[in-house]
């Protein structure tokens, strides 16, 4: 699904990301962990063609993400509030995103039914603008919008941060259900080792922009990761 080749990004003289080769298969659930400044967000931004790599390229479904917007049709993503349109209400935002994918309002509402628990009654049917929502509720809007088009590839940066415990558990269920479709590929980054080992089958540790561990999730994974980060 995704091939990363010789990708690097330098800001000034500092190398933020440097990955010679990384491949993510279709139907994989891929977790990216690392401390602050390890390059997780930078990598995701290059993946989504938001910043230009200093070298190398990212291929999604066989074609370079740069100079091509075909991948946008089947990729849903939410990295940060920079994706949200603050002066819209959540409903208006969902309809806008739906409209871009030619999904009509009735269909949008039907798809949002699946998020009812996750929203906890605080998102839809509310006349508040997104900019006036709390961080956690903004995140709910972003994640639901990213999943609205039922994308084959879903990219989420720190999806669990800022969410309350109940919502975190509901999100895990949503992501598991998303993954139960064999066509779907999931990419998440997280600081929370517990969540990421629960959701992902494969975990890559990023340190100073380089992949230093690539683990298939098993019983000992959490322990292994905890030992690594404690060191």
């Amino acid at each position: 699904m995704i091939q990363i080749e010789n990708i690097s990004k330098k800001f000034g003289g500092n190398t933020a990301v440097n990955i010679p080769h990384l491949e993510i298969q279709k139907n994989e659930s891929f977790g990216l962990v690392g401390n602050n400044g390890a390059g997780k967000t930078t990598l995701f931004r290059m993946l989504l063609d938001l910043i230009r790599p200093s070298s190398g390229k990212v291929m999604i479904a066989g074609s370079n993400v740069k100079g091509n917007s075909n991948w946008k049709k089947f990729t849903g993503s939410y990295l940060d509030e920079g994706f949200l349109i603050g002066f819209l209400t959540p409903d208006e935002y969902f309809n806008f995103i739906g409209g871009l994918h030619n999904i009509n309002k009735a269909e949008v509402n039907e798809r949002l039914q699946g998020f009812e628990d996750f929203f906890n009654g605080e998102i839809t049917g509310n006349k508040k603008y997104i900019r006036d929502l709390s961080k956690g509720n903004q995140k709910k809007v972003g994640i639901a919008a990213a999943m609205l088009s039922r994308p084959e590839l879903l990219v989420l940066d720190e999806p669990f941060a800022n969410l309350d415990p109940s919502t975190q558990i509901r999100l895990k269920n949503i992501l598991r259900e998303y993954k139960s479709n064999n066509e779907n590929t999931l990419l998440v980054s997280s600081h929370d080792l517990n969540h990421v080992t629960e959701v992902c089958e494969r975990i890559v540790v990023l340190e100073k922009g380089e992949t230093i561990k690539d683990i298939k999730t098993g019983e000992t994974t959490l322990k292994e990761l905890e030992e690594y980060f404690a060191a």
């Binding site: 931004r45 989504l48 063609d49 990729t75 990295l79 920079g82 994706f83 949200l84 349109i85 603050g86």
Partner: peptide, 8 residues
């Protein structure tokens, strides 16, 4: 404020 959203 939502330019990344437009681009993706």
């Amino acid at each position: 404020s939502y330019f990344d959203g437009i681009l993706t």
